[in-house]
């Protein structure tokens, strides 16, 4: 298993398609079209993908709520939007990054792959740093 992803989107069809595509690539995918109760999945999740235009919610509200609901979860939150202008403001909206929605799951998978590579790179960098500080120092 390459990693666990939680996808929040109001469209079940979008969720199904994304789940199928990501599972085909070896990810474990949890989907939800409701934000209520989503935070209970967060502890086992590496990446959360949130659709920006969910009826009744803005993605920015959702991420704030999720962060509050599970403050110690180590997952990364990604905004999923077709609007590049919104995507650019991901940091202001308290996201860790943004996926540009291009209407196909291929590009979503490529972007998710990139995020998981980044996560592994961060781990490796931390390992290398601790290796370089020498055995005498604690991490």
């Amino acid at each position: 298993m390459k990693g666990t992803i939680l996808i929040l989107d109001d469209s079940q069809a979008v969720l199904d398609a994304a789940k199928a595509a990501l599972e085909a690539k070896g990810y474990e995918v949890v989907t939800s079209s409701r934000t209520v109760g989503a935070s209970r999945h967060l502890r086992q999740t590496d990446v959360v993908i949130i659709d920006f235009h969910m009826p009744g919610f803005d993605g920015g509200d959702v991420v704030s709520m999720l962060r509050k609901g599970a403050p110690d979860a180590a997952c990364r939150y990604y905004l999923y939007t077709s609007d590049a202008d919104v995507g650019r403001q991901y940091a202001a909206l308290k996201f860790d990054g943004a996926f540009l929605r291009k209407g196909d799951t291929v590009s979503l998978v490529a972007q998710v792959d990139a995020v998981f590579r980044t996560i592994r790179m961060d781990r490796l960098t931390a390992q290398l740093r601790s290796g370089r500080t020498g055995p005498g120092e604690t991490k």
Partner: peptide
């Protein structure tokens, strides 16, 4: 976009 996850991952 410059914040594209694939670009950021590649740069890293």
């Amino acid at each position: 976009q410059e914040w594209d996850t694939e670009i950021l991952a590649f740069q890293k």
